[in-house]
Design a protein around this nucleic acid. Structure first.
Lengths: 157, 157
DNA sequence: TAGAATGTCTACTGGACCAGTCAGGATCCC
DNA sequence: GGGATCCTGACTGGTCCAGTAGACATTCTA
């Protein structure tokens, strides 16, 4: 039931970029993201590139370059990001909606394990597909404000 | 979000042993389990041994030997079996109840990812810790009967 | 009492995957 | 032109997964 580091970093980066966006800073350089989230720069590079290829981000090279959102935060479902990086949400392939594969059990229709794991898959998908990046950014911002903590990425320098 | 083959096989074996138990067959040899579930015998051996060490099963050697439940099906929580074989249910360590570890994020209290993953963890735990082996066996048996399918492990020979 | 049927124990292995690291190249801005 | 940034591709050390292998111990039955 694991989210890989890669998946974790991808989501953290997206959330940060979303928060920055909310505050008027559209373009964020990798170095700044990596420093704040304590992620190795070169590793994060790969991940952002993958998110770019998938259409979530766009980039600008050169001085003052960086990454920015390509889609609206509201149209980015967390579940899809996890699927992109880590593969299907389902614990076992025979209950996956997006990547079904038959399992080896003798009678799938009467497999008790399958019924249970289907519930698990649905519970996970319910949460991750219902929530968009916008939701997560919102909640984070509200919590920061409530606790009177200054949000990050306020202004470039 | 993956359940390993090892975990899958462990649960399938426990469910089978539970079903057999329900029908008066307490002792099941590995070979029979392996054949029905199409699991490599030697691999299943290791798994059953682990379940035995953890107190879920007991065994008898020799001709007509095999494995049987040591605890009641009602006292075996699925979540605990998964934890035993596959580790914590939580997608990331910083939301695990049984194996908490801090993550690298700068402010755990205001981490949007953490809030979301906590919900995921709770949803999974809710399902897997609420359900016992007895529940799964029950549901399976009912579905078999409803569809007029003869349950396996009826009689030894 | 032999031998067949089981579980027990320990070691090993090929391959995949994870979490990076490294080196260099292409753009862009000043 | 030079420095900041993204881009591309290769590589790697370690860990884990899913099994395989083989010898051994115990128990039942003929």
């Amino acid at each position: 039931m694991n989210l890989s580091k890669r998946g974790e970093y991808a989501l953290r980066a997206l959330i940060d970029i979303g928060i920055a966006h909310e505050q008027g800073r559209k373009l964020l350089p990798i170095s700044e993201l990596a420093e704040r989230e304590r992620i190795p720069v070169k590793f994060l590079e790969q991940i952002l590139l993958q998110l770019k290829e998938a259409g979530y981000l766009e980039s600008r090279r050169g001085t003052n370059g960086g990454y920015m959102l390509k889609k609206s935060t509201r149209s980015i479902r967390i579940g899809d990001v996890v699927r992109l990086i880590d593969g299907p949400l389902a614990p076992i392939a025979c209950v996956s909606k997006t990547a079904y594969a038959p399992c080896s059990c003798p009678d799938e229709a009467h497999c008790g394990l399958r019924m249970l794991m289907l519930d698990v898959r649905n519970a996970i998908a319910q949460l991750l597909d219902r929530h968009t990046l916008a939701d997560v950014v919102d909640v984070t911002m509200k919590k920061l404000l409530r606790d009177k903590v200054c949000p990050p990425f306020r202004e470039a320098l």
